[in-house]
Each structure stands twice: as structure tokens, then as C-alpha cells.
Simulated assay, not measured.
Amino acid sequence: VAPSLSFCELALDKWRMVLALREAGLGAPATWLASDASECTYPAIIKPRQGRGSRGFAPLDGPTDLARYLAAANKPADEYIVQERLSGVEYTTSVVVGLGGPYMATVPKEVKVKKGITQVGVTRVVPAVETLCRGIQERLHADGPFNVQLFVERDGLPRVIEVNPRYSTTVALTLAAGINEVEVVLRHALGEKVEPLSFRADLMMVRYSAQVYVPESEWTFDDLRVPAAKGQP
């Protein structure tokens, strides 16, 4: 279950996606290739053209930071992009689109705490975000489910920082709020009728880890193993 191949290829190259968003008038932030960023404005951020989970992300406060980053990089400068540093409210957004193109829903989730992935998020109703995400489907033809990470700035307009051709890592929050993203796309693909979708707003998800304490004599690392299926070692 994924968007079209052409959309996946576009989204997996952040520079190409920025150019496509810019051409379509869909909320692209000011962005430069790191190899041609002499006129970029600061503060800014830098990240690889291809990557995920904030890998390779770094803040830039001036040209010295950019030069230092590129000197330590293991790829050519044109494999990185520099973007204006946004400071509004961050959202990770599930865009539910059936295979072949029918738009079904947008579920914006405000990012409260983020460590690589969203740790604390809250579902919100944000009409400007829905308009943007619907526009991405209409203009760039994802034709399958995707995720948009963005900031809504003080002017109320959303700026896209990432478009991921996959389900969001916050899919569990979308489900808890009332939309089973995977199920509705599969039902549509099977020819079933899907009723208009709605979700519960202002629902918070909190991810956390927990420690377990047991006497060493009672513990074995076999406790961590997943039981093998019948007929397998």
C-alpha cells in the first residue's frame, strides 16, 4: 500500500520535491542546494536530499556553520539542501488517499515532543493544512496514502518541510482518533464503499518507555525471543 512510483521517486528526493511544490504554489519554504547557498538567509537548517528520521539534520546560524558541516560531510555539497529555519507550530499529517487517487481525509497532528519521531502529538482541525494536503494530491498525484511534515507560521500559512511516501509513524494516533488509514485504503482497493471519514480532534498520544526490574536469577535472554512458528527453528 503506497503512492504511485513517480510520486515516491519525487518525495524521496527532497530537492526535487521542493521544486515541485514551488512550481505548484504549495507552501515550499525558501530552499537552496548546499552547493549553491551563498545567498541563503540565516538562521537555517541543512539536511541530506535523501534520508529520514532527522539523520544528518543540523541547525545553521551562519556561513561558518555551513562550511564546517560540508567539510565534515561524506557526500558532495549538492547532495544536501539548506532551508530557512521555520519557527511556527509543527505538524505531522496523515493524508488518506485511495490507490488510484480518491482523496479521503487529512489528519493533522500537532507535534508537541519529537525525538526522531513524534513522541507526543495531538490531533487538530486545521483547514489550511487540509487545503494544502488536498492540493498535493490534486497537483502532484500521490494516488496513495502519504505523510506531510510542515510548520504553520504566524501568518497562518503552512510550509512543507517533508513529504513522505508512506504512512506516518503517528498512524496509531490516527487510528485512535477514529480513522484506520490502512483499512480504508484496502477496502477501497477491494471495491467496497467507504463512508466519509471524520476524526476526533484534540486527542493526545504520549509515547513512553518503561523499565522492568526482576532478580537476575529469574531472568533469561530467551524471554526476549519471539516464539518461532511451527516447523521453524
Rank of each mutant, 00 (worst) to 15 (best):
V1D: 10
C8A: 15
L10V: 05
L12C: 14
L19S: 07
L21A: 09
A28I: 03
T41K: 12
P43G: 11
Q50C: 14
R52M: 15
R52H: 15
S54R: 10
D61E: 15
P63Q: 11
A67G: 04
A73I: 07
K75M: 09
A77M: 05
E79F: 00
S87K: 09
T92L: 12
T92E: 15
T93H: 06
G100T: 07
G101V: 04
P102G: 08
P102W: 11
M104H: 10
A105S: 06
T106Y: 02
K109S: 13
K112Y: 07
T123M: 04
V125E: 12
T131K: 11
T131S: 13
L132Q: 01
I136E: 00
Q137V: 09
E138L: 08
L140Q: 02
V148C: 03
Q149A: 02
E153C: 04
E153T: 03
V160Y: 08
E162Q: 09
N164Q: 11
R166Y: 10
V171I: 14
A172S: 15
A172N: 10
E181K: 02
E183T: 11
V185S: 00
K193P: 02
E195R: 06
L197E: 07
D202V: 00
M205E: 12
S209R: 07
A210T: 11
S217P: 01
W219H: 12
D222Q: 14
A229H: 10
K230N: 08
